[in-house]
Amino acid sequence: MRSKNTILALVVALVLAVASYVILAFVGLSGERGEGMAVRGGFYLQEAATPVMEDLTTVYNLVTYIIAGIVAFVLGLMAYIMIRYREKANPVPSKTSHNTLIEVVWTIVPVLILLVIAVPSMQLLYFQDRIPETEVTVKAVGNTWNWEYSYPDHEDVDSFVSNPLDKTQSTDAGKPYLFATDAALVVPVNTKVKVLVTSVNNMHSWTVPSFGIKMDAVPGIINETWFEVYEEGTYYGQCSEICGIKHYYMPIEVEVVSKEAYAAWIANGGSFDGSVAENNNMTGVQTAAAPK
């Protein structure tokens, strides 16, 4: 009798766990995924653009499966208990209050599950944190409230300020409001890029979700991280450390271009076609949109 109950309960719980996997597989993990930015009504990670983000997605999926299973298991067990042992169905309560075996089991099993999580998680962590040989270095300096980018290896590329586009400007430019800036950080595709992040006043955080990067910009400290983007395109992120009133209004825009285009951009001193006009235009927008 006893063991039959136990088995039934476990079956109910496991069925629920499996059901949650199915739901996750069909709904959760297969949500529409935009390129380089959030998607409308999205409920899943942004699409991976770098190897780090790919690994991150894998670990995220693994952990999600595990924790969804745990939640469903607990829910199933609770449902079973609530039905089977409600007052009507079981008027006389048992008096058991100890069972060493089961107590050991529910200590050991979570430990094992956690080991399963910890191993890939550590691998991801070290992969993400250990900076490989990089070819390009860029520097992002947080300021209240915009980002200033520079290319320490190229002295003739002036550092430039990247200000957000306001609503009309972004509509005109056909870019998403609160993501778009007037001057994107330009980097080459399929190249390992090192990012130096720091701040000159309040803390900020340089974030590009689809790169799997979030690095705090702290005054007095230079943080380093790296990325390598697979595909050309524009990638967006937003400041992710509270920095004052315009915290929501200092987006990050990264333009990933072909290696040739990047070389040209550098050669032209930070402009694709060498026209000074583009730069002037940028500066013009900067002053207009500067939120101070």
């Binding site: 720091t198 007095g220 400290i221």
Partner: peptide, 10 residues
């Protein structure tokens, strides 16, 4: 470490 981090600020 802090001295190495950010010579401009310190």
């Amino acid at each position: 470490m802090r001295a190495a981090w950010n010579p401009d600020v310190l």
